[in-house]
Every structure is written in structure tokens, then in C-alpha cells.
């Protein structure tokens, strides 16, 4: 007999997908993320972290992925609520994820803080990429984490 566990599982409570192809969409996306964060009573500093992380990832998606979409979810781990964002693009992909996750690495002209910096701002960070097929980045920020 299986005993139901109620702690480790992350449940999605609401879902919303936003397509991002041009600059106006970025503003719209940020506003939606902020709305969701406010709704689950995320503190101001965590809101700022989440929004900054989203901003970094959206920029990457626009610059290297030629646009894509973002799935906004309210998630619950039983103990607390959080926001999960999944950015998906069908761009060129990242050949060397390990290198991309290092501080100061950049193929463009940026500071190369995007991915590693973003990881420091959120509670959970995962990245999947295939060259020629696209990149998916998922982040989770807990309301009180």
C-alpha cells in the first residue's frame, strides 16, 4: 500500500502561457508575473528577485532564441506557495551549458551574468538545451524563500 505524501510534491495551482515575440510582450509578461507574485503575497524583495530573473531570461530568449513563450504557474509545495516560470524557445540552443552557467561567460557582448546571476536570484533553476532545437529554462521562486 502506498502512503500519500504531502510534502515533497509540487502542485501547480494555476497556469498561464504568454507568447513573447516583440518588446511590448516583455512588458506585458513582467506585469503578469508581478500580478501573480503579489497575489501569493510574495515579499517585495523576492518579487524584485523574481522579476529581475524573468527579465534576464526573457532577454536571452529574445536575443538568442528569436522569441518564444513563457508559462507562468502558481505552485505549491504544501508548505508554501511560489511562482514557477518556464521559458521555452526554438532558437539555436546552447552548445555548452556548463560554460554558459559560469560567471563572466558570454557569446554576445553582455557581462555574462545572465544565467548564473539568475540562478542566484531564484530557489530552483533548471536548464535544458539542444543545439538547433531550442532551450527551456525553468525557475521557481517561493513566496518566503
Amino acid at each position: 500500500m502506498r502512503i500519500p505524501t504531502c510534502q515533497t510534491m509540487i502542485l501547480a495551482l494555476s497556469k498561464d502561457t504568454i507568447k513573447v515575440t516583440q518588446e511590448q510582450d516583455v512588458v506585458f509578461l513582467k506585469n503578469r508575473v508581478k500580478e501573480v507574485a503579489v497575489k501569493i503575497k510574495m515579499g517585495l524583495v523576492n518579487q524584485t528577485r523574481l522579476l529581475t530573473a524573468a527579465s534576464e531570461l526573457v532577454r536571452n530568449m529574445m536575443r538568442y532564441g528569436g522569441g518564444g513563450s513563457c508559462l507562468i504557474e502558481v505552485v505549491s509545495s504544501g508548505r508554501s506557495n511560489g511562482v514557477r516560470l518556464t521559458f521555452t524557445d526554438k532558437g539555436q540552443g546552447i552548445p555548452d551549458i556548463e560554460a554558459a552557467m559560469r560567471d563572466g561567460f558570454s557569446t554576445g557582448k553582455s557581462l555574462g551574468l545572465g544565467l548564473p546571476g539568475t540562478k542566484r536570484l531564484v530557489n530552483e533553476f533548471s536548464i535544458k538545451s539542444k543545439v538547433g532545437e531550442g532551450t527551456t529554462v525553468t525557475i521557481v521562486k517561493w513566496a518566503n524563500g
Binding site: V45, Q47, T48, R49, T52, D103, L111, L121
Partner: peptide, 14 residues
């Protein structure tokens, strides 16, 4: 600069 922005910038590495 807002406190939240300052904290975020430092964590971002800037």
C-alpha cells in the same frame, strides 16, 4: 536606489 533593487543587483553579481 530601492533596497530591493540593491539586494538583487548584489546577488546578480553587479
Amino acid at each position: 536606489m530601492q533596497p530591493a533593487v540593491a539586494i538583487t543587483l548584489i546577488e546578480l553579481g553587479l
